[in-house]
């Protein structure tokens, strides 16, 4: 049997070309341009540029409010990732049972992922807004979104809920790959359900968990804008003013292009840094089949 082959000198490049054109136009060029602009001050209307060296970086790092956003973004991310993974793993385990109507339960639990963050924000606004929120009506406590600590909590909850579907889909798929015979063998050996979960199921889930850890970290840093804009606008008193929201305000409202560029470079490096760190530390504990 002769295997059909392609000449490897031109064709691969031709096939890659469309992808690269799109990547260059919509990703690499804008990213490089952003990094370049972080070294300039930019006129808010004409776009005239003046080289400023590290001026923008000095300013953002000497700004206590920016450092505050830095801190709360980190707390937010840790909370969203931990709660998000824990809840979705538990729900996925339940959804893996064989009971009647499971198809429907699965669909219902996955659909929040199909919502845009702004719509998710609007739903939480129906529940918690101080004028006529449903939860406020039933609990008599109406300052959910107008008190710093509770507002922060609700943003976390909303972000976790919004991403549940994504995580559950991945966990469900991973659970299909846990071999039944291994679980059976363990129970014959006398392992209880907890032991079986931690020693076997969890080990098989660990590659997925690691993947979701990376994805959720990125999600928490970059995708919370819509929720915050709808629910709190960064308030009360900046308690939900995460890095990504400050970045939006600096570019789109305050017209500080140089600042915004510097902030996006910082955010980019931060997330890349965390991801590299995760690969170097956590991945060692991952069990690949």
């Amino acid at each position: 049997m002769k295997q059909s082959t392609f000449k490897a000198d031109v064709l691969p490049y031709v096939l890659l070309l469309p992808t690269f054109i799109i990547l260059i136009v919509f990703l690499f060029y804008p990213a490089l341009e952003t990094f370049r602009l972080s070294l300039f001050t930019v006129h808010p209307f004409t776009g005239a540029e003046r080289f400023a060296g590290l001026y923008n970086f000095k300013n953002i790092f000497s700004n206590t409010e920016y450092m505050h956003s830095f801190g709360i973004s980190f707390i937010f991310t840790v909370a969203v990732v931990l709660l998000g993974l824990a809840f979705s793993m538990m729900i996925a385990l339940l959804l893996n049972e064989r009971i009647k109507g499971m198809k429907y339960y699965r669909s219902f639990l996955i659909w929040p992922y199909a919502l845009s963050p702004a719509i998710a924000g609007a739903l939480f606004n129906f529940l918690f807004n101080p004028a006529n929120g449903i939860i406020g009506y039933f609990t008599g406590f109406r300052t959910w979104l107008t008190q710093g600590s509770t507002a922060f909590l609700i943003i976390i909850l909303a972000a976790v809920w919004k991403n549940l579907g994504y995580n559950i889909v991945f966990y469900l798929t991973a659970l299909r790959n846990v071999p039944r015979d291994a679980l059976e063998a363990a129970s014959i050996d006398g392992a209880g359900p907890l032991r079986r979960f931690f020693s076997i199921t969890f080990a098989f889930l660990s590659p997925t968990t690691f993947f979701l850890l990376v994805m959720n970290t990125t999600y928490a840093y970059f995708s919370s804008f819509g929720l915050i804009d709808v629910l709190t606008e960064g308030g009360p008193a900046r308690s939900t003013n995460l890095l990504i929201y400050q970045l939006y305000r600096d570019f789109f409202v305050n017209s500080k292009t140089g600042y915004a560029a510097a902030e996006s470079l910082v955010l980019f490096l931060l997330v890349v840094g965390i991801t590299v760190l995760q690969f170097q530390t956590t991945e060692k504990k991952v069990h690949y089949q």
Partner: peptide, 19 residues
């Protein structure tokens, strides 16, 4: 005074509903 936060819908809603 009821703190209804930013935006233009909450205080209108509170007034129209008699809150």
């Amino acid at each position: 005074f009821l703190d209804v936060g930013p935006g233009w819908s909450n205080h209108r809603a509170a007034f129209v509903s008699g809150e």
